[in-house]
Design a protein around this nucleic acid. Structure first.
Lengths: 166, 166
DNA sequence: GTGCCTGCAAATGTTTTGCATAGCT
DNA sequence: AGCTATGCAAAACATTTGCAGGCAC
């Protein structure tokens, strides 16, 4: 869990016998420039990469391969929120490290910080002899607005029974 | 986040205008009888449901629909570990509530408990006005054995570069 | 020059959906 | 009867993979 730049990324890749390609460098750049709180799906990242005329076009396969690699290096974190597909964001070190609260009905997502969670993560990985890559608390719930909007419980808005389709 | 039984499940369903069917009841039973620490994918659950000759056969669609419903009720929790597909387990109340530490290289999974994480979950949902359904801390890392087994870093064992295929 | 990396297209695997039938209440 | 739930098969969707050519080291 470090803040990465191109050189550090290259060094780490080379140490493994892997290479820093323009594609990998560009993907890192996109994530570094992403506004705080945003995260991208593979598809969204791929689309963002097509915008730059002067930059190399990057195929969806490479996007997937790079996301997997960078996640396993601890450079990115893979988020499993409520959108139906994975999202990725750069893995920020303390004190920017954060967690997510997600409404299962409307998918509203709120970020929050917690030093204690990170401490628990470090303590647990040390105890078990793991090398820590990422540590994320995900809370699922129903937000106030979604509850007010009609259902007495946690039934999702896209739930397919007739009552939901009126 | 309660311990559920059939009656409580039926009551909650009826309150929403939904029904307790034999299929839903059977799925709940499977999860209740699942050994501590085990969790099932949709496919695995479906397979387990075919074992009982006297019980109704349950289609895969129904399995998916039920898992979605029960997760949104807070009865099950959806786990996103490293296996490539979602797993489900019954949502245990305090003090059985637990979290997961996962090795991204070999998929080894260790459960651990933490009262403080649950407290943070409750505090955060209260503050934001959410109704809490589930609260899970997932830590990703590389375990000692996986590190010893050869790679100097977090590259996954199924990583597809030639070096990994020797 | 070696062998990792990419792009393409096809394949894979999971999850969702439309529709007709069955079954609670 | 009215409405929800199921089963089936097809569809949709995200992600992975084999292979030939390209390129970082």
């Amino acid at each position: 869990m470090y803040a990465y730049n191109s050189e550090a990324f290259k060094a780490e890749l080379n140490q493994l016998g892997l290479r820093l390609t323009p594609q990998r460098e560009e993907i890192l750049r996109i994530f570094q420039q992403l506004p705080k709180g945003e995260h991208l799906s593979a598809e969204e990242l791929h689309h963002k990469l097509q915008d730059h005329q002067d930059k190399p076009k990057i195929s969806l396969s490479t996007v997937y391969r790079s996301l997997k690699l960078m996640t396993h290096l601890g450079l990115l974190r893979e988020l499993e929120l409520a959108e139906g597909h994975k999202h990725y964001e750069i893995n920020q070190p303390y004190p920017h490290h954060h967690h997510h609260l997600v409404c299962v009905k409307c998918n509203k997502t709120i970020e929050f910080k917690s030093d204690s969670v990170l401490k628990i993560g470090v303590k647990t990985t040390n105890k078990e002899g793991f090398h820590l890559l990422d540590c994320q608390l995900t809370i699922h719930g129903v937000c106030l607005e979604a509850m007010k909007r009609g259902w007495p419980s946690g039934i999702p808005e896209d739930w397919l029974c007739p009552k939901a389709m009126t």
